[in-house]
Computed example of a mutant assay.
Amino acid sequence: MPQTFSVADAVELAVVERSGFVESRHAGSAIVLAPDSTISVQLGDTTTPILPRSSLKPLQALACLSAGAPLEGERLALATASHSGTDRHVAVVRDVLAAAGLNEDALACPVSWPLDQRTRDEMVRDHAESSRIRMNCSGKHAAMLLTCVTNGWDTDGYLDPEHPLQVHIRDVIERLIGEKVTATAIDGCGAPVYGMSLLGLARAIHRIGNSSERSPFALHRSAGTMVRAVRENPWTIDGPGRADTIVIERLGVFAKGGAEGVMVMVAPDGTTVALKMLDGSGRAATAVALRLLERAGALAASDVSDAMNMLPLSVLGGGTDVGAIRPAF
């Protein structure tokens, strides 16, 4: 059975401290690529495959662009998102579906309540129901459907790994990661997700984050446009008060977290980090990635500390801060 790296091949990346007592430890692997793409830091096993989960979304969105999907601005940014399901997010998803001549019934992602608590509370008060369009991956799915319509591909079965859309996406992913995918699994939203090394994922995100809209290569121009769209519309990729949105707004990084403790970031200077928490918890992933970028000289320590103060890293005791989730280095 395909599997990720073992506990023996991981390193301690974060700890949870309560009242001066280290209560829990998060082990995993991480890699940092310098702006010139050379490896500057390598912690743990970075060659055994992982499943990137939603950190794969920038690659999937770029593949949709390369297949001719007419996406730009907030529509393009939302194609990379794990959004929190606010009304603003949903309005953009509906715009993308309308551009494809479709409605939310075409979405094949699961029915879900929004991740944004305020929006969920309002829906409950209004006796509204959960829906596919509120699911955090609906932007990606809408982009996939628009890509199918643009190319004359059948929208039924668009999540099948052998559908022309998914075959194209897999081909683009392999070009970006510089290796063949090692496994095909089904993500929580129903779309294919592929096994790849953490090094391969870092390589792909580095290429995307360092691409120029003036590149002679179409894929690189599209990647540059996509990164700009995310940095100009940080609310799209996550949501109010949520980690990816905070660090994009505060630090100008390109960031995308994924389920099971995956995180990728590209600093403004091109330094790139990719990491995987082995226990699947993402609660320390953003903080660890930021500190790794700080250690690499890509972000100022004061700026990182300011951003981390806005993240949910406090450990509470009796309603009072008594500790913190923090990087282990």
Rank of each mutant, 00 (worst) to 15 (best):
L290S: 00
F254R: 01
R231N: 14
I169H: 00
L43W: 04
E129P: 05
A106K: 07
R75L: 08
F329S: 10
G200T: 04
V266Q: 01
V32N: 00
E260N: 08
G241A: 09
P161D: 06
S281D: 12
T46Y: 00
R88I: 07
T80N: 09
A10T: 15
E232N: 13
L62D: 09
G139A: 05
E17L: 10
M1N: 13
I133P: 01
R88F: 05
A223E: 07
K276Q: 10
A267C: 04
D160W: 06
V16I: 15
M135N: 15
V96H: 06
L313P: 06
L13E: 05
E72M: 08
G20Y: 11
S222N: 11
H163A: 07
D95P: 04
D303V: 06
A202T: 06
L145F: 05
G139T: 08
A69L: 11
I325F: 09
T80K: 06
D279G: 07
V7I: 14
V181Q: 01
V11A: 09
N151K: 15
R203G: 09
P164M: 03
P268L: 10
L299Q: 03
A142W: 05
P327G: 12
Q166T: 06
E12K: 13
D306I: 13
A99I: 07
A185N: 04
V167K: 12
R242N: 07
I173K: 00
M226R: 01
A204V: 02
H206D: 06
L165W: 02
G323A: 12
G195A: 09
M310K: 13
S281Q: 08
I208G: 02
H89F: 03
H163D: 04
S66R: 07
G261A: 11
V15C: 10
H89K: 13
M308T: 00
E74W: 11
G195T: 02
T155N: 08
P234L: 13
D279I: 11
W153F: 15
L198F: 11
L78Q: 01
S302T: 15
A99W: 00
L102V: 11
G323D: 05
P312C: 12
G317Y: 04
A328Q: 10
R221L: 01
Y194K: 08
V266I: 04
R228H: 14
D154W: 07
T225G: 11
S138T: 03
G20Q: 09
T236V: 14
Q42M: 13
L97P: 00
V111T: 15
G101E: 04
P161C: 12
I39R: 12
K180L: 12
V172I: 15
A284P: 00
M263V: 01
L107C: 05
P216T: 09
M123L: 14
G157P: 06
D187M: 04
I325H: 02
R120G: 02
T182N: 02
E129N: 14
N151I: 10
H206N: 07
T155R: 07
L198A: 04
T155L: 07
F254D: 08
V7G: 08
M263L: 13
M1Q: 13
N233P: 03
Q3T: 15
D126H: 10
I248S: 05
R125I: 03
H127T: 13
M135G: 03
R203T: 14
A298R: 01
S40D: 08
A267H: 01
P70R: 03
L299Y: 01
A285H: 03
A301M: 08
V93C: 10
V124T: 14
G261N: 06
A255N: 02
